[in-house]
Simulated assay, not measured.
Amino acid sequence: MRAVRKSWDAVYRGASQPLEVALIIERALTDPTPSARYLCGHQSASVIASRILPTRLWDSLIRIQMT
């Protein structure tokens, strides 16, 4: 659990800046042909990867990252 806590603390410290998020929200609201989803910030790639990779592989990668 300590490793999990340490990992989550690092995620929160490295979170996207509010201005970056606000600009993406503005883009979504003003885009004449909006997308269904807008990814934002440095963690965006992990969202994509979690949908593409098989569950067992994704879980293994997360487990490695937390140890």
Rank of each mutant, 00 (worst) to 15 (best):
L23K: 13
L29P: 01
A3G: 15
D59I: 08
S60P: 03
S44N: 02
R13F: 05
I52N: 01
V11T: 11
G14T: 03
R56I: 08
Q65D: 14
R56C: 04
P32W: 10
L19R: 12
V11I: 08
R63A: 15
H42P: 00
L53E: 04
S35T: 07
S7A: 10
R37D: 05
V11A: 11
W8K: 05
S60F: 14
L39C: 10
S35I: 06
T33W: 02
I64N: 06
S16L: 00
A15S: 13
A36P: 05
M1T: 07
V47E: 05
W58Q: 01
A45C: 13
I64Y: 09
A15Q: 14
V47G: 06
T67F: 07
C40M: 08
P54G: 04
D9F: 15
P34R: 01
T33C: 09
S44R: 01
I62D: 11
I64V: 10
I24S: 03
I48N: 00
L19C: 12
L23G: 09
I25D: 05
A22Y: 15
K6Q: 14
V21L: 02
T30N: 07
A28R: 00
Q65C: 11
L61P: 01
A49M: 01
A36E: 09
L29Q: 06
A22T: 11
S46I: 04
R63D: 15
W8A: 11
W58Y: 13
C40V: 11
D31R: 01
Y12E: 04
Y38N: 04
T30Q: 11
G14I: 00
A45P: 02
T55E: 04
